[in-house]
């Protein structure tokens, strides 16, 4: 049997579960599992990782702020509610808030030929409120892959804290 250079990585990928985080959802995982969220457009993915306990959390938000809505039954839809919820879920699972490092991705402008009636810059506003909320919680953003025009898939490795970014027609990127 021939061993390819990527064999060790493949073995590890096979040994861990890949847990899917849907739109307006958040999930927590422990090593060796990975968290994945597919197709972030103007949405923003927030990955939090505690390297000491190897606990990670991933959140997929759609909108910046919940304050303009009366009826909020999915807090993970909003940056301002989803991020604190993600932090408290990580703490409940044994992670320490002081250890947490954040990596964020998404917030793209997907459409060209925009007209003024379209709600502009929703991606930008998502990024902005995400940064602000993380800052208010004292969590440092160590890497980000935001803005631009491309949709992204985001994978958090709870062992290393690395985040893999997948885009259409571009090689996998690690942040």
């Amino acid at each position: 049997m021939q061993l390819s250079p990527g064999k060790a990585m493949e073995d590890r990928a096979a040994a861990c579960n890949e847990i899917h985080v849907g739109i307006a959802e958040l999930k927590i995982a422990r090593q060796p599992d990975r968290l994945i969220t597919l197709g972030l457009g103007s949405c923003v993915g927030v990955a939090l990782h505690d390297p000491a306990t190897m606990i990670g959390g991933l959140l997929h938000i759609m909108l910046p702020e919940s304050s303009q809505f009366n009826n909020v039954n999915k807090p993970a839809k909003f940056a301002d509610l989803g991020i604190p919820l993600l932090v408290s879920e990580i703490r409940r699972s044994g992670g320490k808030i002081n250890n947490l490092r954040a990596k964020i991705a998404g917030g793209a402008q997907m459409f060209s030929g925009l007209n003024e009636k379209f709600v502009l810059n929703i991606g930008e506003r998502n990024i902005c409120v995400t940064r602000k909320t993380l800052k208010s919680l004292g969590i440092r953003i160590v890497a980000e892959e935001v803005g631009g025009r491309r949709g992204r898939t985001m994978i958090l490795d709870t062992v290393t804290g690395q985040v893999h970014i997948r885009t259409v027609g571009v090689r996998l990127k690690v942040i």
């Binding site: 972030l40 103007s42 949405c43 949709g151 259409v168």
Partner: peptide, 12 residues
């Protein structure tokens, strides 16, 4: 682009 990214962005 990715279907999920496009559809979610246009719905929002």
């Amino acid at each position: 682009d990715m279907m999920g990214a496009i559809l979610s962005a246009s719905i929002v």
